[in-house]
Design a protein around this nucleic acid. Structure first.
Lengths: 164, 164
DNA sequence: AGGCTGGATTTGTTTTTGCAACCCAGATAT
DNA sequence: ATATCTGGGTTGCAAAAACAAATCCAGCCT
């Protein structure tokens, strides 16, 4: 899959890398688990707490950080028979993590789940055909993983291009 | 993008979720940064150390864990003028993280990088056309993100199917 | 022999985590 | 009105992990 040649340094310096930057707020077991649940539709403090077994203090902290990072928002809700409470929903930015997370899930079903049949499949509702995450080019064709190369902008600490 | 309805519980119990399981070994800022560098072609202890500014103790620990998880392997190498050393390469399993990581990178370039032009683009070497990560069905057609549904295996703690 | 270097481990200190207990507001029950 | 329950937190303390610095170690060079 386009294995790059040996390098002493990444072509993109870590301080200019948005990916590395994003690990600041989601490179954390608990944050990732919260987002996983949130992408499934879970919204409430206590539901997160019981589902993922996160300590309450850590949950409060992580929700605060996810909100500060723009991934989630607080909204009021009112279930009848109880007082108004907050629920924690994904923002558009957080919702957009669905694709990377589903890519990750395919990976983990394959490599962690080994032979077991995956507990979930993605299908197209219209015809029930199975859906996966893949590379596509701008003409809508699927690109085999070994047929891609990276092009870098100049200001990154050199290492001109990189083939496969 | 197929926002799911409110739920009190994820359709897949966390103990059966390979995605959640994978967060055990890569739900960690440092592990993610190491993998990012490794996917770029970095292999040596000291290169990881200087590039990502990870404390040596933590680096040693993370490399050990990544090896134990099957994502990396140790190999001997010998640069002339110095004694034999180890280098840390991705296994096939680790290499396979390229797709999820690139999906993640598209996300972060868009949402974290805001307006800035991304430092890296993926292209097809043959015709230079730009490449992205997307959903595709089994006939090779691109699927718009709002046209997918999840199907669950039965043994997961119920919540029959889920539309969009 | 002595110094240099990449690749670690050890030691002591600071931060983060995890757990338990407590607080608080509103709904409901008495 | 008072008590009590319940979801949604905060506070305080012990345990675990992260960090920095020093040390170690093997083999290449002089």
């Amino acid at each position: 899959m386009a294995t790059p040649p040996f390098r002493r340094q990444s072509p993109i310096h870590i301080s200019h890398c948005t990916l590395a930057a994003s690990f600041d707020f989601l490179g954390d077991r608990w944050s990732l688990l919260i987002l996983r649940s949130a992408l499934f539709g879970v919204r409430r403090y206590d539901d997160f707490h019981t589902e993922i077994g996160i300590p309450r203090t850590v949950l409060a902290d992580r929700l605060k950080r996810l909100i500060a990072s723009g991934l989630m928002t607080q909204q009021d809700y009112k279930a009848d028979g109880s007082r108004p409470r907050k629920e924690y929903c994904l923002t558009e930015m957080g919702e957009a993590l669905r694709l990377p997370f589903l890519a990750m899930r395919e990976w983990s079903d394959h490599w962690v789940g080994q032979g077991r049949t995956p507990p979930m499949r993605l299908v197209r509702p219209s015809d029930g055909s199975e859906i996966h995450v893949a590379f596509v080019d701008d003409k809508g064709r699927i690109v085999p993983p070994d047929d891609l190369a990276a092009r870098f902008e100049d200001w990154a600490p050199h290492a001109r291009d990189s083939a496969e």
